[in-house]
Amino acid sequence: MRRRPGISGLQTAAATRDQYRSLGENVAKIRTDLMMEQLSIFRSQLEEFARKHKNDIRKSPAFRAQFHSMCAKIGVDPLASNKGFWAELLGIGDFYYELGVQIVNVCLSTRPHNGGLIDLEELRGLLSKQRRSSRDPITDDDCLRAISKLKALGSGFEVFSVGNRKLVRSVPTELNKDHNQILEIAQARGYVTSEEVQVSLMWHSGRVIDTLETLMKEGLAMVDDGHPDGIRRFWFPCVGSTSGAVEAGSELSS
C-alpha cells in the first residue's frame, strides 16, 4: 500500500529545491564573474586597440569601415552613446554627429530644388565640397551611419534604393512602388516622358498620369514643355545632379 504524502515528505522536497537553487546561484555567480573578467579583458584590449589606431580610424575611411564591421561582428555599437568610452577615446561619436548636422543642412538647403529627395552620391559630393578645406574624406558608408543616427530624432530621414542608386529622403513622403519605378527610369537622363513610361512599364496612360501628377504635387517632379520636339518631359531634380548644373553654370560664366 502506497503511503500518502506526509508533512516530512514535503519538507524534504522543499529542502532539496533549496539546495538546488543555491547550487544554481553559485554556478551562475561563477559564470558571471568569469564573464565580467573576460569582458574587462576584452574591453581593455579594445581600448588599447582603439587608442593605438585612433588616428587611423579618424583619418582613413577604409580603416573606419573595417573598424565598424569588426564592432558589428562582436555586437558593439560605437555610436550607441556619445557618453561611452568610445566617444571619449575616439571622438568618433562627434565625427558622426557633426556629419549628421551637415547632412541636415545640405538636405534643407537643396529642398526647394529637389523636393526633399537627394541622390546619396550627390549628397556626399556636396558634403565633401563643404568640408573640403578642413577635413578628412568621407564615404557613402559614413553618410549612411550618420543618417541612421538622425532617425533617433524622428525627423523622417530615410534612405531607400531606386534601381542601383540610393536616395536620401528628408521629407515624410510615402513613395509607393509606382513612384519608385518611374524614378528608376528617370535615372538614365534625369527626365521621363509619359509615353516612355507607358512603353517600358506596360502601364495604361491613366496610371502613368496619376503617378506623375502625384510626384509633381509632392514637389519631386517638374514639367518641361520647352523641347523643340514639343513632347512634354517630366524632370526629377533628385536624380538629375544639382552639382552638375552648378558646374555647368560656372563654365557658362567663365
Binding site: M222, V223, R233, T242, L252, S253
Partner: peptide, 26 residues
C-alpha cells in the same frame, strides 16, 4: 561678362511655367 548664372538657369523645366502652385512660387 563675368555674370554667374545660377544652377537653375541650366535646368530645362525652369523655362516652363510650373502647374503646381508651390513649385511655381519657388
Amino acid at each position: 561678362d563675368d555674370f554667374k548664372f545660377p544652377y537653375f538657369f541650366n535646368y530645362p523645366p525652369y523655362f516652363t511655367l510650373q502647374p503646381v502652385r508651390d513649385t511655381r512660387e519657388k
